[in-house]
Design a protein around this nucleic acid. Structure first.
Lengths: 196, 196
DNA sequence: TCCTCTTTCCTAGGGCCTCTAGGAAAGAGA
DNA sequence: TCTCTTTCCTAGAGGCCCTAGGAAAGAGGA
């Protein structure tokens, strides 16, 4: 009997490719076993269960993604950094929709405990925002706005939620212009109730 | 044999409640049959298949949601309308996370053909934006930014993606302040490449 | 070379799920 | 009362997740 020579890393990589090709929901233990030329029960030597498999895809994705973002942001500040961050974020998600979807799962604390991807992602965000000179809690609020917009835009784009009339990349660039402007001129506390 | 007296509408409503309670992924034909006191095969008289069931939840959600938003926005303009729209949007999603998730599925054209919810949602968005006096393509770009931010924020909030340090409703209010500001002063075309 | 230990992969099988086919019975309307 | 439609059933095929227990490949040392 010739062995396939699998390891947890190889299994995860194959699963991640499957997720990118057919969607995270279609990553199943039995389909993955078929792809690897192995019986489904054999995969349980490498992976705890289906949930574990998908978590591993998410952790892999978060590390690859933060690597790309870190490289893109390096040496930049202000709007350059914002655009580099955002474009790297979006491009990774478009290149690897399944891995990206897996990064957005609801993780348990112990599942992400041994991973650096998510922690670095927070650090990168705050580093990029440094140039805008915000203090807490504005910093957290602005970070949440950015994450929401990036994630929401990509989620809608990947889900086909945008019509076809207007170029999606153009809208993205305009949205980044808008976000840069708002970060430069962040509305200070208690302004909201005064303006019409 | 006493009949349950089911209809497609009752089945959908029960499924929507299930989705809100346990997540859209846990809405299954057999679990729904158990909840309704019926055999799973019986539900296929009311619903084509599992996909169809989830689509119906999404259409129901989109109609309920646009009803709420329309009521909230009525008679308001400018920032009042923006905040009313956004708060109604967010509150519906928090009240009905499963239905909301179902509205974000990737629908086929024929699945949404007979529904008014999504069309009204687009009309409501453009109606709310009217006060900001934008022309195309800025109007489309701004609409996409708003949808992205709303959806992204709610998706992250429901998914537990925000830490617990800062009040989430406060960040939401600040983000709306920021969006209002950017809509009032939308960056005109070709500005993006000139600013540092 | 042979022996042992670990790891990889297997067969077998239980349980839950989707969905179809075909039939029975309830309820509506003539 | 009779007929027709709709609702619900049993039976069963096929897929997926996962566990138990065992075989064999390969690594490392005697």
């Amino acid at each position: 009997m010739v062995r396939a020579g699998l390891t947890a890393a190889k299994v995860t990589a194959a699963a991640a490719d499957m997720a990118d090709e057919g969607g995270l929901d279609n990553v199943t233990v039995s389909a993955l076993a078929r792809r690897l030329g192995v019986k489904d029960a054999s995969l349980y030597s490498h992976v705890k269960n289906l949930r574990d498999l998908r978590v591993r895809i998410g952790l892999l994705g978060s590390e690859e993604m933060t690597d790309r973002i870190a490289a893109a942001v390096a040496g930049r500040a202000g709007k350059d950094a914002l655009v580099a961050f955002a474009d790297a974020y979006r491009q990774y998600a478009l290149d690897h929709p399944g891995r990206y979807a897996a990064t957005q799962m609801r993780f348990e604390p112990e599942e992400v405990a041994g991973s650096v991807g998510f922690r670095r992602s927070v650090e990168l965000t705050y580093g990029m925002l440094r140039a805008y000179d915000l203090a807490e809690p504005d910093l957290t609020d602005a970070g949440r706005l950015l994450r929401s917009t990036f994630h929401g835009y990509i989620h809608l784009e990947l889900g086909g939620g945008f019509g076809h009339s207007r170029d999606i990349g153009e809208s993205w660039a305009r949205s980044l212009d808008a976000l840069h402007q708002v970060l430069e001129n962040w509305p200070s506390r208690h302004d909201g109730s005064k303006n019409k």
